[in-house]
Amino acid sequence: KTVKFDGLQFDFDNPEKALKFALEVAKQKGAEVHIHGDEIKIE
């Protein structure tokens, strides 16, 4: 899975870790997590 935000991109082999990371970043930024297939966007 790939996590994208602020023009940055982070690749994870483990989908659970990717989602956990995305949710943590979103919480800190006050943003929402959007999942599109293998891509997780924080907006």
Rank of each mutant, 00 (worst) to 15 (best):
K1M: 14
K1S: 11
K1H: 11
T2Y: 07
T2P: 02
T2N: 05
V3A: 01
V3W: 00
V3M: 00
V3R: 02
K4C: 15
K4P: 04
F5A: 02
F5H: 04
F5E: 03
F5W: 07
F5T: 02
D6K: 04
D6G: 09
G7W: 06
G7P: 03
G7S: 06
L8G: 02
Q9R: 10
Q9L: 09
F10E: 02
F10P: 01
F10Q: 03
F10V: 05
D11Y: 15
F12P: 02
D13N: 03
D13H: 01
N14T: 12
N14R: 00
N14M: 05
N14K: 01
N14I: 04
P15I: 14
P15F: 15
E16V: 06
E16P: 00
L19W: 08
K20V: 05
K20Y: 07
K20P: 00
F21G: 15
F21V: 14
F21I: 14
F21C: 15
F21W: 08
F21N: 14
A22W: 11
L23S: 11
E24D: 08
E24I: 04
E24Y: 01
E24P: 00
V25W: 04
V25P: 00
V25R: 00
V25L: 13
V25S: 00
K27E: 10
Q28L: 11
Q28Y: 04
Q28A: 12
Q28D: 08
K29H: 14
K29S: 11
K29Y: 13
K29F: 14
G30W: 07
G30K: 06
G30L: 07
A31W: 14
A31S: 07
A31Y: 13
E32W: 13
E32F: 13
E32V: 14
E32P: 05
V33I: 12
I35Y: 07
I35D: 04
I35A: 03
H36K: 09
H36N: 12
H36S: 11
G37D: 09
G37C: 15
G37S: 07
G37V: 08
G37P: 07
G37K: 09
G37L: 08
G37N: 09
D38W: 09
D38P: 05
D38C: 15
D38Y: 08
E39A: 07
E39K: 04
E39L: 13
I40W: 02
I40N: 01
K41V: 14
K41F: 15
K41W: 15
I42H: 03
I42E: 02
I42M: 05
I42W: 03
E43V: 13
E43I: 14
E43M: 11
